[in-house]
């Protein structure tokens, strides 16, 4: 097995809201090709963690760095705007689905090609050969992604008309269209039925294997988390209380006490 390179490195991340400390000195890393889960009870600070990493919030303290694979550089994420972070190769989905409701499914994905394409206003107006080609590439690329997540029959439907599970998959396709090397999934299985969840399980693994994208996900569905992740971080009250392989986490008395207790048996 080849050396696992680090792609995301978070050190001592801290986030205060007024007097409230939502995240308290969290260290976390994701290595290339890994699927890592971040779990914890509601209000533990997981989504806030995502918001800090993706630039929605500006953290009060700590250091966030990404190392795009294949490039020998480290990019510090602190103080970067969300769109710049996406350009560097991080993409995310949202806990409460945030699709562009009145655009079609295909367009939702096409929007995400924005930062990988160039056409400007003049290009759009005069439609020269280069722009036509680029537009066609956007369409084809996006369609390919929709096939991958199994939404090709819905291309021309409006996003708001999709069933819930399909909306979650569309969010993943949309995030992938930005060509990330690290994908942050915020509760991708929320609201899905068991069958959809197992399909999602396969989809996430496939994304990792085919696209070489590393994945960090927040999830409450323990069965999913235990089956797909190589490593798990556990947060509670803004702190990291445990980390390790699924097996270690399942046996960790702290975790069982703070969080898993009853849910894990069920």
């Amino acid at each position: 097995m080849r050396e696992m390179l680090q792609v995301l490195d978070i050190q001592q991340l801290t986030m205060d809201f007024g007097g409230l400390r939502a995240i308290d000195g969290v260290d976390l890393e994701v290595r290339q090709g890994e699927i890592v889960a971040l779990i914890g009870p509601n209000g533990a600070g997981k989504t806030t963690f995502f918001n800090c990493v993706t630039g929605v919030y500006e953290p009060t303290g700590g250091r966030m760095t990404v190392r795009p694979p294949g490039k020998n550089v480290a990019v510090r994420l602190n103080r970067l705007k969300p769109n710049i972070i996406t350009e560097h190769g991080l993409a995310r989905t949202f806990q409460n689905i945030r699709l562009f409701q009145n655009m079609t499914v295909l367009e939702n994905v096409m929007v995400a090609r924005h930062c990988r394409t160039r056409s400007g206003i003049l290009g759009a107006i005069f439609k020269n050969a280069g722009n036509r080609r680029e537009e066609q590439e956007i369409v084809d690329f996006s369609y390919g992604l929709l096939e991958k997540v199994g939404l090709q029959m819905h291309v021309n439907d409006l996003a708001r008309e999709l069933p819930y599970g399909a909306q979650r998959r569309l969010e993943i396709a949309r995030a992938l269209a930005t060509e990330p090397f690290l994908l942050l999934l915020d509760e991708p299985a929320a609201g899905m039925n068991p069958r959809e969840t197992s399909e999602l399980d396969a989809l996430i693994t496939r994304i990792r294997d085919d696209e070489g994208v590393s994945i960090l996900l927040i999830e409450h569905d323990m069965k999913l988390v235990m089956s797909i992740s190589q490593r798990i971080y556990v947060m509670d009250y803004g702190r990291l209380i445990a980390q390790g392989t699924p097996k270690e986490i399942a046996e960790n008395p702290n975790v069982i006490k703070a969080y898993l207790g009853e849910t894990f048996d069920a």
Binding site: V56, P82, T86, F94, F100, Q101, M103, V111, T178
Partner: peptide, 18 residues
């Protein structure tokens, strides 16, 4: 498309690199 996306959801729009 970027304009419409912005109208629909600013946060998601930025997260898509716009």
């Amino acid at each position: 498309r970027a304009w419409i996306a912005l109208r629909e959801d600013e946060v998601a729009c930025q997260a898509m690199g716009i």
